[in-house]
Computed example of a mutant assay.
Amino acid sequence: MSRTPAITALAREGIAHRVISFEAEGHAGDYGRAAAAALDQSPAQVFKTLMVELDDGRLAVAMVPVEGRLDLKAVARVFSVRKAKMAEPRKAERATGYVVGGISPLGQKRRLPSVIDASALDFDELYVSAGRRGLEVALSPDDLIATTAAKVATIATG
């Protein structure tokens, strides 16, 4: 298995983690749910990495369970702006160095402001993209929050 920037970053920082690969076919664009199914994990414990554009022009990272939807108004409040919208895929890929469906909150080209849904704290271990479709990394929510300098807030609905 090749190392991605996300896996390299975790190893460099000495963060305990597990890398899990799975067949990423048949996702119909919903990579997060495909990952949860392939890993036989609750969709509440597998987090998707979404890129948002704030109305001040900054890009930010929002991590929510794959079973939920991102509340853009809540994200805007977290970052003290009036509005947030989903970033265009090409802009997200350019900023992170990853392709959509494999964007990891870890090892991005540069550290972007990040927020994770508070439900992450309900688990001992979370799953997030390891930087490629079909590749996830399992780690503690505390380590994910620390290494991404993420704020913790309720940003998911449903």
Rank of each mutant, 00 (worst) to 15 (best):
150 A>N: 07
93 E>H: 09
145 I>R: 00
148 T>Y: 06
61 V>F: 00
77 R>K: 15
8 T>M: 02
128 V>Y: 04
24 A>Y: 10
153 A>Q: 09
127 Y>K: 12
101 G>S: 10
85 K>Y: 08
105 P>W: 05
148 T>V: 10
49 T>L: 04
143 D>A: 13
39 L>A: 13
7 I>Y: 05
142 D>G: 12
127 Y>T: 12
78 V>Y: 09
58 R>N: 11
64 V>N: 03
48 K>I: 08
135 L>G: 12
81 V>P: 09
8 T>R: 05
9 A>W: 08
93 E>Q: 14
7 I>S: 07
156 A>C: 07
88 E>Q: 10
127 Y>A: 15
82 R>S: 07
26 G>I: 12
54 L>F: 09
121 L>K: 11
62 A>Y: 05
150 A>E: 10
30 D>E: 09
77 R>M: 04
77 R>A: 07
32 G>Y: 15
28 A>F: 13
112 L>D: 08
84 A>D: 03
66 V>H: 06
66 V>P: 00
134 G>E: 02
61 V>A: 01
108 Q>K: 03
5 P>F: 05
52 V>K: 01
68 G>E: 04
147 T>R: 12
98 Y>T: 01
30 D>C: 08
21 S>T: 15
85 K>H: 10
28 A>Q: 13
119 S>I: 13
89 P>H: 02
69 R>P: 02
82 R>I: 10
129 S>C: 07
92 A>K: 00
11 A>Y: 05
139 L>W: 12
46 V>Q: 00
117 D>H: 09
64 V>I: 15
38 A>H: 09
41 Q>T: 08
87 A>D: 08
15 I>P: 03
30 D>M: 11
18 R>P: 02
70 L>R: 06
71 D>F: 06
54 L>Q: 13
60 A>P: 05
21 S>V: 11
60 A>V: 05
136 E>D: 15
149 A>Y: 01
102 G>C: 08
145 I>Q: 02
21 S>R: 14
105 P>L: 05
19 V>W: 11
